[in-house]
Design a protein around this nucleic acid. Structure first.
Lengths: 232, 232
DNA sequence: CTGGTGGGTTGACATTTATCAATTGATTTG
DNA sequence: CAAATCAATTGATAAATGTCAACCCACCAG
């Protein structure tokens, strides 16, 4: 693993405070691999052998049941996924596939558990990370249960806009079919939902979104920090 | 606090392994109160001053937005809630109200955070608990996104049946309106959903459910441990 | 250049779910 | 006991969402 990557991983909240020895030992056992796009990295139901870290590219977490499937989340650099399964030594609840060419570090789960037992700074960081993950899912669930698909899309656009710097126009860094799945609707419905937001000043050209009337859209979307603010 | 309650709390996974001193110190700062039914214990958005432990009775966790509200979960004795908010020192994401007369212990959040820093056994237990909570919410989200309301009800009944001992007939320990909200539908819809399960051998009399054809219902519901098994 | 491929869109239609209003039935309360 | 209350149910209807088929268009490979 190149030094720069090593340092980038070290800077993650999860690893920043742990003892040098323990971090080095974790990394010694790690594999780093480049994967092409559309590769299934893990499959739900399998034992959780590795904690994964996305170094570059992006990864889709999804789940299937009875012939249907749905995107649960997207993981972008640099962050980890499958932490809860690793800690509990329980089967994966979601599958993961690369969305594009990606570089992924794999840390053996038993190493993570061993160092978690030995390094209380690491244990604390894991607590913070898990609490964050838990709260994110709760927010997603509120989004799903309390809002219609049009409202979910409107709020998604506002979040994405903020994330992209707050300007009126920004890029959708999602395939629309995946966005539809993340938002819990069909691609056809998403297409119509975009049209449904036109009266509130939303213009779509390919992957480019333009919010022409910020106040109008916010009046409709009613964004709420207890659902839409990912930082708290 | 009576000795028996003290011991019951001590037995919770969350507190079982921590040092005696630390547990005693946590409990010294705790309040225990009896609340009547339908009392709002906490309100979403407020700072998380206390970790709550339900000693008896039951508590509904719910959330509201834009005039709508939805039940997220029910907490039954003996277990805690609001752990993630306490740890992160972040605002509550959900409100809580007693469903019946309940006895609740309140532990000041700053005490929990202080002892979490000092007692690594406690920290480890918190990790396990949070990982468990996280995985439960992920399962709930899969249930919501991958299943129709009829399928959610069918699987709920099978889970409840197992929880009640596995016999063909069992009690629904939920008000139907609340069950509807938990399952993400309206009470009217739940009523119709029960009728929709009649062809699969489900009989409803008040709060009593009878599953007359286990195999048929399971063939329809297609229960899956990665969604319906709460223990893993 | 050309034919294929796949994402995105559109229209017609079906299904699911929500809403509203009215009724029932059990329980509570004065 | 009778009135009031509230959860549960039912029917009629509306709204939201999904499905299916067709089509457009950008992109890529031969």
């Amino acid at each position: 693993m190149p030094d720069s990557e090593y340092r980038d991983i070290r800077k993650l909240d999860l690893f920043a405070q742990m003892a040098d020895d323990n971090f080095t030992s974790l990394m010694r056992g790690a594999y780093v691999q480049n994967f092409p796009a559309q590769i299934e990295l893990i499959t739900e139901g399998e034992p959780s052998d590795f904690l994964h870290i996305v170094i570059s590219g992006s990864v889709d977490l999804f789940s299937a049941w009875n012939g249907r499937d749905t995107s649960m989340a997207t993981v972008r650099p640099i962050s980890t996924f499958i932490l809860a399964a690793t800690i509990k030594d329980a089967p994966y609840l979601m599958s993961a596939r690369t969305l594009e060419k990606s570089r992924i570090a794999l840390i053996p789960s038993q190493d993570v558990r061993a160092i978690f037992d030995a390094d209380s700074n690491f244990a604390r960081a894991i607590v913070t990370e898990l609490a964050q993950c838990y709260r994110s899912v709760i927010k997603a669930q509120k989004d799903l249960k309390l809002r219609t698909s049009l409202e979910r899309l409107a709020n998604y656009l506002l979040r994405q806009q903020r994330h992209a710097g707050g300007r009126a126009a920004f890029e959708l860094n999602f395939e629309k079919r995946r966005l539809a799945s993340v938002l819990g609707m069909t691609p056809e419905n998403l297409s119509r939902a975009f049209k449904g937001l036109q009266p509130y000043g939303v213009t779509v050209t390919g992957t480019r979104i333009s919010i022409d009337n910020q106040a109008d859209l916010e009046r409709f979307a009613k964004p709420n920090p207890l659902i839409d603010d990912f930082s708290t």
